[in-house]
Simulated assay, not measured.
Amino acid sequence: MSLSHTIIADLRGAPPGDLGRLLPTGLGTSAARAFLKPFHAADDELFCPGALREDVALGDFVNEQVVAWADQVGIYSGRLEKLRACGFGRFMMLAHPGALDADRLVAAAKCLVAEWAADDYYVDEVELGADPMQVGSRLANLHAVTDPAQLPRRYAADMDDHHRLQPISVAFRTAMEHLSRYASITQMGRFQHQMATLFLAWTQEADWHANRRTPPVWEYLVQRHLNNYLPPMILVDVLAGYEVPAQEFYQPLVRQAFTTAGNAAVLINDLYSGAQESENDFNLPTVLVANEGLTRHEAVLRTVEIHNELMHTFVGLATQLSATGSPMLRRFLADTWAWLGGSRQWHATSGRYHSAPSSPTSPSSPTSPSSSTSPSSARS
């Protein structure tokens, strides 16, 4: 059974079929060697690697640390069991197989959960106080935490008092403090840039909700380019303990490759989260149905096709860059490839999208996501 049919079967509660996985030969393998012989799936199957690591104990440890932190800072109050079921600690364990330090994974998981919580509390989840008319102001104020604002003394105290009462602000401040133990000044700046981009994307989504407008497909894909998975992916080299030189990281082809990978990864989210969303939420299949008159089945297949096009573009760029780039860049591209596989694995098995997490020993068999156990019914 192809993956697209598996996802459709999931939506109907039918048992899924086996999914092929691409496993590079090892963490020490050069990116060029890993990308030159990609797995070629049929047109209606996802072209994506599988996870390189499944360490249940490590994932559980990171997850418990993050749930305890969430309780401490005050996010997801009353929903901590649902947060635990999401397995965000496992997400980071899967996505960063080159990271052997559990505390680095905890720092990254805190940042990830802070991002998800901001989306839930400010953008998507009405039960948590989300209001499209306030998204812009809330995110602008939050940006003053992620990239600290310098106010005149008489007003700085007012701003600090405001953020002390906002669990999302406390979550971001403490998560970034933890991350700063491992990220260089340059790497922290890259993370801050991606957060600003993400906040901009959420204001665009709020505009759609406030004006009750379904965007055309191209505009939705622009929003997903901004609201992709680069905020957590930007920590790939931080967690593995190295740093891609700035002259390579910001090279246009490198940026194109990295953003393309992030865009492809977020479409995996669109496929697996669809059953959890309200009628007012947006995902690529929904937008395709509204704009192009496709059936839900056809829209899922089209989404898989678009995902695969992006992935093939990334593979082509990564192969080219790996042949000429520094060892750090080659490692970064290989770690990005591994991140994509870990992310796919998490989406296929997480309690956020499924009634119960799938067994780690059966990574290609997601269960039916018909009953959400996530802290939010939102898209992310």
Rank of each mutant, 00 (worst) to 15 (best):
Y250G: 02
L58P: 05
L329D: 03
R104M: 05
Q187G: 10
L288Y: 14
Y122V: 06
D44K: 00
L294D: 07
G28C: 13
M159W: 13
G98P: 05
D335F: 13
L321A: 05
A114K: 02
I8M: 10
R79Y: 05
T313H: 11
A196T: 08
S376R: 10
G89S: 04
Q65R: 15
L142H: 06
Q251N: 08
T259Y: 13
E248G: 08
H96A: 12
Q247W: 11
M176Q: 11
R224F: 03
R302P: 01
A257C: 12
Q276A: 15
R53P: 06
V170Y: 10
S184W: 02
S380A: 13
Q256D: 12
R53S: 13
G351D: 06
R352Q: 02
E277M: 15
G241E: 10
A108Q: 06
D60Y: 00
M176N: 02
L284D: 04
K110Q: 12
V56Y: 12
L329G: 00
D237I: 02
H163R: 14
A68L: 09
S368N: 07
A85Y: 06
Y220T: 08
I268C: 13
N263A: 14
R138C: 01
D44H: 11
L226W: 09
L317D: 12
R302K: 15
G59W: 04
S30H: 09
F314H: 04
Q251P: 02
H347S: 07
T186V: 13
Y272S: 03
S370P: 01
Q204R: 15
T319Q: 08
V62L: 04
T260H: 07
S169Y: 01
R33Y: 04
E277R: 10
P216S: 15
I185M: 11
V113Q: 03
A210R: 15
W116G: 00
V56S: 00
N291W: 05
A57M: 09
V217Q: 06
A85N: 11
L288T: 12
A196P: 02
I185Q: 09
Y182H: 15
I8N: 02
P363D: 09
V287R: 02
M92G: 01
H40I: 15
W208I: 04
P232Y: 04
S359Y: 01
A68Y: 07
V67R: 02
F191A: 08
E248R: 11
V106F: 12
P215Y: 05
A264E: 00
G28S: 15
A34N: 08
D71L: 07
F172A: 01
V126N: 03
